[in-house]
Amino acid sequence: MKVLVPVKRVIDYNIKPRVKADGSGVETAGVKMSMNPFDEIAVEEAVRLKEKGVVSEIVAVSIGEPKAQDTLRTAMAMGADRSILVETDVVTEPLSVAKVLKALVEKEKPDLIILGKQAIDDDMNATGQMLAGLLGRPQATFASRVEVADGAVTVTREIDGGSQTVKLALPAIITADLRLNEPRYASLPNIMKARKKPMEKITPADLGVDMTPRLSVVSVAEPPERKAGIKLDSAAELVSRLRNEAKVI
């Protein structure tokens, strides 16, 4: 079976984002970019399914500026077989991305689409769910365990205070949570081999998708700094304040 794995290029998780002085956004010029960490987990899961013999082909997709091909190369170095870059300079948001993915799913007909649960830049946590909604296919978000058998996939999902198990008919959409797996390194030999794997380049227009964003950014600001509170003299006073003033216990 075929798996589609969408991946996003974001500011590397080790970098502290810096708000631009003019408040128009977060500085990305000259900033180290990497594959969204949840997407790495998604790629890893697809590769593990392939190693188990469940999956025969993994197609990685990225939507964005030309540099996103670096992210696709990483996905292929991790084990994706080929990739598709949907090139656009328009700001992407989950709705437009889900529409592009829907068009690609209709073209590629994968049995499984595995996405990261959220991108660490806009923290939307929506694309997988929206793709499932647009396709009218079942979804399992925040997966911590995935098992494919007999034309269905059983997914353990992380929910508040525990976990939930659902069984989905294929084709289905899964979004990966942190504990699903620990992604492998893209090793140097595999990075070298990935240079030769095929990458198709298309545009949203080729797929007939209108990318116009629905959300516009009015401004971006640094969060207010926390201020020092008060010093107390006793444990008794602390407990009383936590109970009566802060109301957290």
Binding site: I120, D121, L215, V220
Partner: peptide, 17 residues
Amino acid sequence: VRPIYAGSALATVKSAD
């Protein structure tokens, strides 16, 4: 107003929907 980048920044966004 919503946090982005794990709370490193606050974005004010306007919806056209």
